[in-house]
Design a protein around this nucleic acid. Sequence first.
DNA 1: TCGATTTTGTTGCATGTTGTTACATAACTT
DNA 2: AAGTTATGTAACAACATGCAACAAAATCGA
Lengths: 245, 245
Amino acid sequence: MAIPRILVVDDDPDVREMMTQFLRRNGAAALPASSEAEVRKQLGGGRVDLILLDVMLGDENGLDICRRLRNAHDVPIIMVSALSADHQRMTGYEVGADDYIAKPFNPDLLLARIKAVLSRARRSSSLVHRRKTQTFRFEGWSYDAKRDEVMSPAQVQVTLSRRETALLQTFLANPHIPLTREEIAASLDATGVAAQGGDAVGRAVDVLVGRLRSKIETHPKEPQILKTERGVGYVFAADVHVDDI
Amino acid sequence: MAIPRILVVDDDPDVREMMTQFLRRNGAAALPASSEAEVRKQLGGGRVDLILLDVMLGDENGLDICRRLRNAHDVPIIMVSALSADHQRMTGYEVGADDYIAKPFNPDLLLARIKAVLSRARRSSSLVHRRKTQTFRFEGWSYDAKRDEVMSPAQVQVTLSRRETALLQTFLANPHIPLTREEIAASLDATGVAAQGGDAVGRAVDVLVGRLRSKIETHPKEPQILKTERGVGYVFAADVHVDDI
DNA sequence: TCGATTTTGTTGCATGTTGTTACATAACTT
DNA sequence: AAGTTATGTAACAACATGCAACAAAATCGA
């Protein structure tokens, strides 16, 4: 992608100006907007790659706007808010935002998030970025994302089922971060929609993790890579190195 | 992340003490510091997950410190100040702080901000996460924080349960400091939420300490490492050396 | 298309973990 | 010394997880 076009939506002119300037200094084409009407005008008039949407928009409600925009467009949206409470986060997510960031934020962090969301949007659907060849290495193992092949430390090829591969990809994308069963299930279902309500997920993830362990752990009974986080979920506990050719 | 290590930087000893206590009660390993020099010493000496930095540091200027720290480290920083004017906020933000909170603050709000910043920092590191191999040694024992393995003085591996591991980590982060049952319980609960009012904690901690003793004390009946502080709680009475590779 | 094969989810049971309770013992107070 | 309080710990119950065996679903090959 050449230059990303980013719509900055905030009703405070100072904030709008500052963020616009900042984004322009960092190589984006930033377009200011202060209301839903302006946003729709921009969306109708040309390409928009990303929307930075403030939650508090004077009399308008950013969350509602986000929801409405999502009904008609699938442009990526990052919600910006001064409130960092967790339920707020959740509300932002349920509303269809791709990410959520609290004000005031670290500029580099914002850039990182923007890049992440943009590159995610460009990917077809898989979690794994498909360039020419991308190889993930961990604990002597390697996973070639292009060929979809897993090689053991002894350079023996191991065949994973589709679901097992998806699980491995999920963990490779989130090393050292404990993932709940719900998060894992959501990540595996291409829809990305988490199963709603309580413990509806069942034990499928547990069994799947067990199966992956039996294939990539030297001693499946004492896992070194795919560790259990009791009461939480599972963690990929190995460092991941990415060869991006 | 097991227990967040938070550096409390304030030149007022009372404030420092109060905040340190508060954070410890809520499950963090809080380390007090009163000057930039001390901060740098701590940053050089071990893992620090977050810095709570007061803007007014006597003759030193918190904003400058923040800026300088950010040039060399990417540790998350939350600025604390008695001035809540907006331009101050912005200054803090431009300086590279991840968040900004005005004194006097609501304790729960501070906790919420800390959690938000920590989880953001964890998520954003994703693919390039680099965890140093950190090994703690005490009385011939060693605990490898990365592999989560405990080795006895005779180099025999000892398996601790999840809760026992968390307890050991709590003590390793606070050697020679007597911890109350409430502090320990709070530290163990991943939520970081302190137990409600009074003595609601029950005897769970006692039993847990007993179990850990049975595994890492040569003579569990006469503990040399995990000593009881009658009427108070428990102390980790051994010196801890950290190999930070 | 049909049956064979592979993959995936479900269930039940074994095992391990954790908090509670009850009681014994130790430590303090008077 | 006797009473009081705090702590140690065994036994138990509740719960989470691992996993084998089975069932359902998807995929494949003719």
